[in-house]
């Protein structure tokens, strides 16, 4: 076959696949918007949930719950993940133990979230007696997010030119001084971007939080780490599958839309951080 024709065929296949992914995303968004946009109003966003008459209440507790959850996950996973990445990339020699740690992290990133849910239930809920609570859920999702934060942070550290390290070492800086003053400032925006993406994924998780603390209905907002909490993805799940109100499906779509917008906003923040950094970066 003529090379030019082959070129055209492959190019067309690649282009088709690219457009396909866009089409799937748009179709999905349109579906959620069409079904759910009707229920979106101020009361829906800011009202307390009324389980007897779902048209009266709002999903504020679920929004707040998911927000708290995200905050908790960030507090637990980002410092640990970044520290681990610094150790692996800056300090660790390539010993057998370090290779095992790397392999473990890579595998942990691929463990199904429901398995994290079971782990969280066994360790945080039962063993450590946190009960089904915001704390247990945040810790569970943090355990799931840490491998992503590590991977993203390591990538960010790898983009820091070796000249920044060698130049500082040659002036008599200690390794920690080099990291603190030269490596971290250069890598931090990349680390933050990666962490936000990981966080957004954690906030969209449903399966693990069902096991460790999410609830469909509660009076008021959680006011302690040991309270149960409502969460947007779980709310969608219940409305879509367990609720017998005829309008439940619409409200599920409306809740899903709020979740999608929340995740989109977080991704947008990550993009802005990255864009500003790229603009300033000159190496």
């Amino acid at each position: 076959m003529n090379e030019k024709i082959k070129e055209n065929i492959y190019f067309t296949i690649f282009r088709f696949c690219s457009f396909l992914s866009l089409v799937i995303l748009l179709f999905f968004l349109l579906f959620v918007i069409k079904l759910g946009v009707g229920v979106l109003d101020l009361n829906f966003i800011t009202g307390m949930w009324q389980t007897q008459d779902i048209t009266k209440g709002g999903i504020l507790p679920a929004i707040v719950g998911t927000f708290y959850l995200g905050l908790g996950v960030a507090v637990f996973s980002v410092p640990v993940g970044i520290s681990c990445a610094i150790y692996l990339n800056e300090y660790a020699k390539n010993t057998g133990l370090v290779r095992v740690i790397r392999l473990t992290i890579r595998n942990l990133a691929g463990v199904p979230s429901i398995v994290y849910g079971l782990f969280g239930f066994a360790v945080f809920v039962q063993l450590l007696q946190f009960g089904t609570s915001l704390l247990a859920a945040a810790l569970t999702l943090a355990a799931m997010t840490i491998p992503w934060v590590i991977t993203a942070s390591e990538e960010a550290l790898k983009t820091v030119p070796d000249g920044f390290r060698e130049g500082a070492l040659a002036l008599g800086a200690t390794k920690w001084q080099v990291i603190r003053t030269n490596v971290l400032p250069a890598a931090l925006p990349g680390m933050i971007t990666g962490s936000i993406i990981g966080l957004a994924r954690a906030m969209g998780e449903t399966a693990p939080i069902i096991i460790v603390g999410a609830t469909f209905y509660m009076r008021g907002l959680p006011d302690s780490l040991f309270d149960k909490f409502m969460a947007l993805p779980y709310h969608v799940f219940i409305l879509a599958t367990q609720h017998n109100d005829p309008l439940a499906e619409e409200y599920a779509a409306g809740t899903a839309l709020v979740l999608v917008i929340l995740i989109f906003l977080m991704t947008l923040i990550a993009m802005i951080v990255r864009y500003n950094f790229r603009k300033k970066r000159k190496w």
């Binding site: 000249g163 920044f164 060698e166 130049g167 500082a168 040659a170 030269n182 250069a186 000159k282």
Partner: peptide, 12 residues
């Protein structure tokens, strides 16, 4: 014992 490298490596 200071060192100047092949590729100029000012810090950002």
């Amino acid at each position: 014992v200071g060192m100047v490298f092949q590729k100029p490596n000012p810090f950002p």
